Amino acid sequence: SDYEVNVNGIHHRFHNISEELIKFIEEALRRGEDLREIIKKVRELLG
């Protein structure tokens, strides 16, 4: 049904976003950045 496609589409989009965010955060932590600064950047990215 349309509803299922829609829900799956939304889930898929969020899954991709969270994968990208996790990579972004892991790389920043590897560079020794402060978690609070990383979260601030993530918030800015998400608008």
Score class of each variant (00 low, 15 high):
33 E>F: 15
19 E>W: 15
37 E>S: 13
35 L>I: 12
30 R>D: 08
32 G>Q: 11
42 V>S: 02
17 I>Y: 01
25 I>Q: 00
44 E>V: 14
29 L>D: 02
46 L>C: 05
9 G>I: 02
11 H>T: 13
21 L>M: 12
35 L>T: 06
7 V>K: 05
18 S>Q: 05
22 I>T: 03
16 N>P: 01
41 K>Q: 14
24 F>N: 05
15 H>D: 11
31 R>E: 06
35 L>W: 05
9 G>Y: 00
36 R>A: 11
18 S>G: 07
7 V>T: 04
7 V>D: 03
35 L>D: 02
26 E>K: 14
16 N>W: 06
7 V>C: 05
11 H>E: 08
10 I>G: 05
2 D>G: 04
28 A>V: 05
14 F>K: 00
28 A>N: 11
23 K>T: 07
21 L>Y: 05
35 L>K: 02
39 I>F: 09
46 L>M: 14
15 H>E: 15
8 N>D: 09
7 V>P: 01
14 F>Q: 00
2 D>R: 01
26 E>P: 00
3 Y>A: 00
26 E>S: 11
2 D>I: 06
36 R>I: 11
12 H>S: 02
26 E>I: 15
17 I>K: 00
31 R>D: 06
27 E>R: 14
12 H>K: 02
2 D>L: 03
40 K>G: 08
3 Y>T: 01
38 I>C: 02
21 L>E: 06
47 G>P: 10
12 H>R: 02
10 I>T: 12
38 I>E: 00
22 I>P: 00
11 H>W: 14
20 E>Q: 09
5 V>D: 01
34 D>Q: 10
38 I>M: 04
21 L>V: 12
39 I>T: 04
43 R>M: 10
30 R>P: 02
44 E>F: 15
12 H>P: 00
10 I>M: 14
7 V>L: 06
18 S>I: 03
20 E>R: 10
40 K>N: 12
20 E>C: 04
29 L>C: 01
35 L>H: 03
6 N>A: 06
44 E>G: 08
39 I>M: 05
40 K>L: 15
34 D>C: 06
30 R>G: 09
10 I>Q: 13
31 R>I: 07
44 E>W: 15
47 G>V: 10
8 N>T: 02
4 E>F: 03
45 L>H: 08
33 E>N: 11
19 E>R: 10
5 V>K: 01
8 N>R: 04
15 H>G: 08
37 E>P: 06
16 N>A: 05
6 N>E: 12
36 R>T: 10
41 K>R: 13
25 I>P: 00
20 E>M: 08
8 N>C: 07
39 I>Q: 04
43 R>T: 14
38 I>T: 05
43 R>N: 11
31 R>C: 03
32 G>I: 02
5 V>Y: 02
4 E>W: 03
3 Y>D: 00
2 D>N: 05
11 H>Q: 09
15 H>L: 09
28 A>G: 07
42 V>I: 07
32 G>H: 12
2 D>C: 07
38 I>N: 00
3 Y>W: 08
29 L>K: 04
38 I>A: 03
31 R>F: 09
21 L>R: 02
28 A>H: 08
3 Y>L: 05
3 Y>G: 00
1 S>E: 09
29 L>H: 03
47 G>C: 05
38 I>L: 10
39 I>S: 03
24 F>C: 04
27 E>H: 14
41 K>M: 14
4 E>D: 10
11 H>G: 03
20 E>A: 12
36 R>G: 10
20 E>L: 08
43 R>H: 14
34 D>R: 09
45 L>N: 07
11 H>K: 14
45 L>P: 05
11 H>V: 14
9 G>F: 00
27 E>T: 14
3 Y>E: 00
38 I>D: 00
46 L>G: 09
20 E>D: 13
30 R>Q: 09
28 A>M: 13
25 I>H: 00
30 R>M: 13
47 G>I: 13
31 R>K: 10
27 E>K: 11
17 I>L: 08
42 V>P: 00
24 F>R: 05
28 A>S: 11
13 R>F: 15
43 R>Q: 08
20 E>T: 11
45 L>R: 07
32 G>Y: 06
8 N>W: 00
33 E>S: 11
27 E>P: 01
24 F>E: 06
46 L>Y: 07
27 E>C: 12
30 R>N: 08
24 F>T: 06
42 V>F: 06
29 L>E: 03
14 F>M: 00
45 L>D: 05
33 E>D: 12
28 A>D: 06
2 D>E: 06
44 E>M: 13
3 Y>P: 01
31 R>V: 08
37 E>C: 07
18 S>R: 08
38 I>K: 01
6 N>R: 10
10 I>S: 07
2 D>Y: 09
40 K>I: 13
25 I>G: 00
47 G>T: 11
37 E>F: 15
6 N>L: 07
14 F>N: 00
25 I>Y: 01
38 I>H: 02
36 R>P: 10
43 R>K: 08
39 I>H: 03
3 Y>S: 01
42 V>A: 04
4 E>M: 04
14 F>V: 00
